[in-house]
Structures are given as structure tokens and as C-alpha cells.
Simulated assay, not measured.
Amino acid sequence: MTRDFAAGNYRFIPAVFQYSSGAAAHSGFEIERVRFDRSIPLAEGFARAAKHIQAAGRPLTSFCACELRSPAAFTEAGFLAFNRHYVKTLAEWGIFDGTSNPVARSNVCPEIDPPAEPSFYAFSFTRPADGQHSTATADFVIAGGAEARGGEGSYPERIVRYRDCSAEGLKEKVAFTVAEMESRLAAFGFGWKQTTAVQAYTVHDFHPVMADELVRRGAARSGLTWHFARPPVIDLEFEMDCRRVMREVVI
């Protein structure tokens, strides 16, 4: 089930208050992804994103996805506190209404040379399609997802193969995360064949399961970018996101 966010010209997969599970542009619109040449502290990143979006003639409500970097994995309480701080700007921009958040997000923690504070890596926003690429398939961004089942309960209760980083444990974690990506893609009516980029975040060697769990399922059709980083909550070990975005720039 998806929901429209008319003010941003995109639809989204409802999830939790801090982010949606994905955003897809409305017909006649495309997504532009903007990556910073270096990580930018959160407040400055929001300010620069606003400047870029407005310079493109778009409202701030067109902000549809972001990719963040944090110093280290959070405790559950720490993650909740960070998220409550993060959504304040989205509320000011007219995006977060207090319960529903249409913005897709990834937030991971580089293992080597992490930022000193939570920072922006990239953001995405919708804009009118320029006609240079087919709009038969909508541009989309699927939010980061790790090996935690949905529903009630603490992370230790929901993490697949909790604290098990054995070969079999990692295989099950990767398989679960790939299936979660497929479920989110399917919510929009898409599959791996529509993606233009796939990213994985882990400090573990997942090469032994890559052929069966990723390549043969079609997830690596455009290659796969591995970020040597941890998911945002302690004891999560593998995260992924993916997208179909034709317009990407670095600033």
C-alpha cells in the first residue's frame, strides 16, 4: 500500500515516524539525487539542500529522500532521540505532519574515518521531467533496510540471527534484507530490473553469498556499491538500499 504526498509530487510507502520505506515520483516528474563531495553536518546539510532545491525552482516539500552518515551505531534510545531531532526540520518544511513521514532515508556509520557528528551524504528531490528519458517507469528511492523484522519488540527481539555473524548467520541476514528490498520495490509495482543503483552497508565479507542472494536474484544488474559501514543501530550487521534515478549530481 502506498500513499500520495501531493505537495512533493511523489508517493511513498508508509513506515515509521522518522522515515518512509520508499518514495516514487508522480507521472511527469523525475528525481534528482545530489551527493555532497564531502559529508556535511546535519544542519548545514539541510540548509544546502534547501538552497539547491529552491534554486531549481522547487518547493521544499519536493525533498523525498536522504542518505546520512553518523559517527557510530546508536543504542535504541539514542536512535529515537536522534530521529526526534531530525524530523523537526521536515516539520518546518511542511513534510512531516507529526505522524506520517514520506521521506525515504538511509543512515549508516562508516567504520573508518566516520564524521564527528550526524551528517548528510546525499539527498533527493522531485522535479518536472525534462523529457530526456522515458517516464514509463517512475524514478524512485527505496529506503535503507537491515535485517530487523517489523512489528513490536526491541531490536534484539527482531534482529534476524541476533549477534550471529557466522557464515550461516550472515547468509540469513543478507537473504532477509534482499527480500525486504524486493517487498518495498513490489509495493510500487517494480523489481530489480528497474533499479539503476544498489548499495550495501556492512563491515562483514558477504562475497560468499553474493552470487546466490544478490546476483542471481537480479540485484546487481547495475553493479553493487559496497560502503564499509555499519547500520545505524547496535547489533544490526547488514543494510541495503536501491533506487532508479536518472539525474545525479555531485556538489
Rank of each mutant, 00 (worst) to 15 (best):
R38Q: 14
A15G: 09
E44D: 15
G22N: 04
E32K: 11
I31V: 15
R48P: 06
F46C: 05
L60H: 04
L42D: 04
G28T: 04
Y19R: 11
H26W: 08
I40H: 06
V16E: 02
D37I: 01
T61G: 09
V34H: 01
A23L: 03
D37R: 03
V16L: 01
A43L: 13
G28F: 09
E44L: 12
A43W: 10
H52C: 08
P59T: 10
E30K: 10
S20Y: 08
R38G: 05
A23N: 03
K51M: 11
I31Q: 03
A56T: 08
A49Y: 03
F17W: 00
P14A: 05
P41Y: 05
C64Q: 00
S20G: 06
A47E: 15
Q18D: 09
I53M: 13
H52D: 07
P14Q: 02
R58E: 07
A55G: 13
S62P: 06
S20E: 04
A65H: 02
L42N: 06
A55F: 04
A15D: 15
E30P: 06
A49C: 13
S27L: 14
S27P: 14
P59N: 09
I40D: 04
S20M: 05
A56K: 10
F29H: 03
I31K: 01
S39D: 13
S62D: 14
I40P: 05
R58I: 03
S62M: 08
A49H: 03
R35I: 03
G22Q: 04
I53Q: 04
A24Q: 06
H26P: 07
A65N: 01
F17S: 00
R33I: 00
F36H: 01
Q54A: 11
R35M: 07
G57V: 13
S21I: 05
D37H: 03
S62Q: 07
R58G: 05
G45N: 03
G45R: 02
S62R: 03
A43V: 13
G45A: 12
P59M: 08
F36K: 00
P14K: 01
S39Q: 13
Q18F: 06
R33C: 00
E30G: 15
E30N: 12
A65T: 00
I40W: 05
G45P: 09
A23T: 07
Q18E: 09
E30A: 13
F29L: 03
T61F: 14
P59I: 08
G57Y: 15
E30F: 05
F63M: 02
F29I: 02
F63A: 00
S62L: 07
K51E: 14
A49F: 04
Y19L: 13
A43Y: 09
S20H: 10
G28I: 05
V16N: 00
I40L: 12
E44Y: 11
L42H: 11
E30R: 11
A25P: 11
G45M: 12
A23I: 02
A49W: 01
E44R: 15
A56N: 12
R38N: 10
A15F: 15
P41M: 07
A43H: 11
